[in-house]
Amino acid sequence: MTGRTATERNSAMSRRQILDLVHRFADAELNGDAAAYERLLTPDFTGIGPVGFVLDGRQWAARHDDLTNHAFEVLDPQVRLYGDAAVVTAVQRQRTTARGHDASGSFRLTLVAVRDGDRWAIANLQLSGPLRPPTAPPPSAPATGDPETISRDELRTAIAAGTAVTVDALPAPAYDRRHLPSALNLTAEDAPASAGDVLPDRAARIVVYSTDTSCTRGPDLAAELKRLGYRNVRLYADGIEDWVAAGLPIETGGGA
């Protein structure tokens, strides 16, 4: 068996350097290390977020003034080399709070790196998503659409009477910090695998909520439950922020 050629050795070294670059990028995102981006990004860097906003390097670093990553990882990075450039595809998974709202999720990450002397730097980054598990509606599932909503007063009455199952659609850390009385916890991402355990009665009256009207997690979970065959799902669109602003009681901890 012959040894590797110089080209193969250089290619292997470049891949290791690029994977290290991706690892350092993930560390900078997790720690909000704005100074690290000066070493990680090219001067003409462009970053494109999951909803289409375009940021230069300074603006990308400044995002951390308004957001906190409680957990952040780049999964299964795949590197393709093209001379002094490389394309990396991966999945970015994060548990994030942005301007007081939950911005957690998994996103498809495409990253373009270029060689700058003896180092690699990120020239472009684009996110798409959030990713959702593929699910097909069962034959008996009702047609999907905008979920029927419920007001705060209606929900308060239903909770007091025990006539509705309330479900917090936020990730577990947010649920643990505070949730509506007796609320269960289930996210749209986990619903395909876990809804049957959390909500065994598909005919039950279910009320889903998240942060407020700007948060998509509540509507996403309501739609997911309808696709899974739950027949009586309503959305408290104003969410826990409205509940707290009204001075109504909340619970904390992981058990409902």
Rank of each mutant, 00 (worst) to 15 (best):
57 G>Q: 02
121 A>G: 04
105 G>N: 00
58 R>N: 03
57 G>E: 08
117 G>S: 05
59 Q>T: 07
67 L>H: 07
46 T>L: 02
90 A>G: 10
69 N>F: 10
104 S>P: 02
99 R>T: 01
65 D>Q: 14
108 R>Y: 09
76 D>H: 11
94 Q>I: 14
65 D>G: 15
65 D>N: 15
64 H>Q: 11
109 L>Y: 05
73 E>L: 10
88 V>W: 04
86 A>H: 06
46 T>G: 03
60 W>F: 14
118 D>H: 09
125 L>D: 01
128 S>G: 12
113 A>W: 00
46 T>S: 09
87 V>I: 10
123 A>N: 07
90 A>K: 03
96 T>Q: 11
85 A>T: 15
79 V>R: 01
109 L>M: 09
106 S>G: 10
108 R>N: 03
117 G>E: 06
56 D>P: 06
75 L>N: 13
122 I>V: 12
41 L>Q: 02
44 D>H: 02
107 F>Q: 00
58 R>L: 03
103 A>E: 03
95 R>W: 01
82 Y>C: 08
74 V>G: 11
53 F>P: 04
96 T>G: 08
89 T>K: 12
61 A>F: 01
78 Q>P: 08
75 L>F: 10
78 Q>Y: 02
48 I>P: 03
78 Q>S: 12
90 A>T: 09
45 F>W: 06
55 L>R: 12
115 R>S: 05
83 G>T: 11
52 G>N: 05
118 D>W: 05
57 G>S: 08
62 A>C: 09
113 A>D: 01
109 L>A: 09
103 A>Y: 00
108 R>W: 07
71 A>H: 15
104 S>G: 01
63 R>G: 07
101 H>R: 10
79 V>F: 02
74 V>Q: 02
42 T>E: 00
83 G>Y: 12
40 L>H: 02
68 T>S: 15
95 R>C: 01
90 A>E: 02
92 Q>P: 04
113 A>Q: 04
117 G>V: 06
89 T>Y: 07
71 A>S: 13
70 H>T: 08
85 A>Q: 06
74 V>E: 10
107 F>D: 03
95 R>P: 01
62 A>K: 15
110 T>F: 10
50 P>W: 10
93 R>E: 08
112 V>A: 14
42 T>L: 00
58 R>V: 09
95 R>Q: 08
80 R>Q: 15
63 R>E: 12
90 A>L: 12
47 G>Q: 07
54 V>H: 10
